[in-house]
Write a protein that binds this DNA or RNA. Structure first.
Lengths: 355, 355
DNA sequence: AAATTTCATGCAATCGATTGCAATTCGCGC
DNA sequence: GCGCGAATTGCAATCGATTGCATGAAATTT
């Protein structure tokens, strides 16, 4: 019922139809052309008229209909942010890392005058992303995580869709990514754990995902450099879900009660791992060191405070948005960006425990 | 440069202008009227023609421009979800509870064929919310948390804005809210802590926020029923930020080293409190019991697992969206809804500790 | 064979704003 | 007093789709 009945004359009734430019024009005794120009601050309009119209607009709470504007001018100030999920596990939205990312993107977009359309979509139906652009609902797309769809993303880039992806930089990649240096991150963790005198490590994460694969590669390489190997029994393929992390950790510790360090590919998994270790009466870090990835806000406040690899979330949002906007402005797809990645050592991985 | 050059004839060049209905009409040798009807499945169109057009559309990857559709038909399938923040503290987006809420809303909206426009806005400029509606960018608004702006929300409701708020149900309230039973939640916590033999309680949270105020009221009432009081020294006004929670808890324990229970108005604060207690060598729950609020996913995996009052996040999303859609369909503003609220007891508040 | 339906499609107005170009007014010089 | 440029403002086409009404062909009736 919001939209109905016409205003009889001049000012539309308080209830009923939304005010529009023609109404304001009538009230001001000018044409809509003049109103349009006045509101957009055109030099063509007499300053007095302009002020009069603007005052009137404010008084009547008039706001330009941006749907109509969008249609006529052909510009869209909406960016779609897509969080893919794998329907088998419902995974992904639960990770607090995503939360930080969304916040950071929201800020970066708002700062630049864009709106954010947030959407979770089935990772197996990534092509629906193209529809968002084709239908004019969004000017561009930011995808969080490339998941297992490298080829599909390449295809979308080939179609010329304005697309930027948070994730790993891969060989033969035609789309633009922004991400941390995952290989380096993994290696830093390996070096740190070795320096703490740990020897029997395990890894938690789904190496089917490019970012995780790179973290693993860096980790394994770092261990190898220290003369330590990592067998198939010492890693576990887990989605980014707390309960899965817990189960995996329980299995690992039961399989090898002597393990002394865990590298989890996300803080969420690391926290779940700590819980599982506790269930098995292992002290963290005295018995087992735990290192996560992301440095989500809670990591510092966890019990014990979690060592982790920091992903520069704030920069990430800015970098993603800027890359996309550059693309929309017709500049060639910007080169993929690698953001700074560093290890934050807290209590969960230290050799000397508090007590 | 995405939009430029006209197609010379028939199929538009692969590069360049976006395909539109007129192009498809030309390709099919019919008018746009026919295409429009064919794609919308009108009975008026010959089934064969309809199929031919649809096939063509699929083949050329044509998608109806929803901006134009929106303008002509006047319907908007976008809902704005607003997360207010207080600029002084940058608070709010950090809380994992919000994250769950956003996910739940995203699901509920998608299921019903709506898109979600996510926006953080300065709580002091809530009126910009009206602009979202007035400008036609969104059909309705879901606001997460009423913060300190009860009156402003009433004013917006009076203006007839389609608005639903997650939060507390207050006296003299003209807008529709969906929320948990905060008073009951607080009371349950009090009863539980008393039953565990705790006596010196403290409360963490900003009672300037209606939801928190209600939780506190229930809590204080429950304690009073058990013959226990709560002095001004036993509560602390804290925003929903981990670091603030930590500071507040440190101050409280220093002020009264004998306290034996903490009720935090969110899980985030509870987790921060656990960290602070740990810094002061207090065992949770042996020395101090801690109870949070929300039951975010991590609560169960915290160390120790966190007792908390569960907010039914999934139902919440559904209820908020349904209430809003009912409003948009012209039904009177639905009555505010109170969702089920129950206490989940985990280790952090138990009398007998594990070891 | 003429008249009447039925079916399928096209024409043109419309949604609410923007903008190139034309029109009007005013001031001022000659 | 007439002409010309500058300053304002309005007219009408346009963005891309939707839809009431008209149209024309085929099918049916008489």
């Amino acid at each position: 019922m919001v939209k109905s009945g016409k205003s009889v004359q001049g000012a539309p009734a308080d209830t009923g139809r939304r005010m529009q430019m023609a109404d304001l024009a009538r009230l001001a005794g000018v044409s809509t052309s003049t109103v349009s120009r006045a509101l957009s601050g055109s030099e063509l309009i007499n300053p007095e008229t302009r002020e009069r119209i603007r005052t009137l607009a404010r008084k009547f709470n008039y706001t330009i209909n941006s749907v109509a504007t969008g249609l006529r001018s052909g510009v869209q100030r909406t960016i779609a942010v897509i969080v893919p999920f794998e329907k088998t596990s419902r995974q992904s939205f639960a990770d607090p890392f995503l939360h930080g990312m969304i916040g950071s993107l929201a800020d970066a977009l708002t700062e630049r005058g864009y709106e954010m359309l947030l959407s979770r979509i089935d990772a197996d139906q990534l092509d629906t992303v193209a529809t968002l652009i084709d239908s004019g609902r969004a000017a561009g797309v930011i995808l969080i995580g490339q998941w297992r769809h490298h080829d599909q993303l390449n295809a979308m880039a080939a179609r010329g869709l304005p697309l930027v992806v948070w994730g790993a930089h891969l060989p033969h990649q035609d789309y633009c990514t922004v991400g941390g240096d995952n290989v380096r991150g993994g290696r830093l963790v390996a070096e740190h754990l070795l320096a703490q005198g740990r020897r029997r490590m395990v890894f938690l994460g789904d190496r089917g995902l490019p970012e995780v694969a790179q973290r693993y590669r860096g980790f394994a390489a770092g261990l190898r450099a220290g003369g330590i190997g990592l067998s198939a029994q010492q890693r576990r393929t887990v989605p980014f879900l707390a309960e899965s992390g817990r189960q995996a950790m329980l299995a690992l510790i039961d399989a090898d009660p002597t393990l002394d360090a865990v590298f989890a590919s996300s803080d969420l998994l690391a926290m779940a791992a700590v819980g599982a270790l506790r269930e098995r009466q292992r002290q963290v870090p005295a018995d087992v060191a735990v290192v996560g990835y992301d440095d989500v806000e809670l990591a510092a406040h966890f019990n014990p405070p979690l060592s982790t690899v920091r992903q520069p979330i704030h920069e990430a949002g800015t970098a993603l948005v800027d890359a996309l906007l550059r693309m929309l402005n017709g500049k060639a797809a910007p080169a993929s960006a690698l953001l700074e990645t560093r290890l934050i050592v807290r209590e969960s991985s230290q050799a000397a425990s508090r007590s």
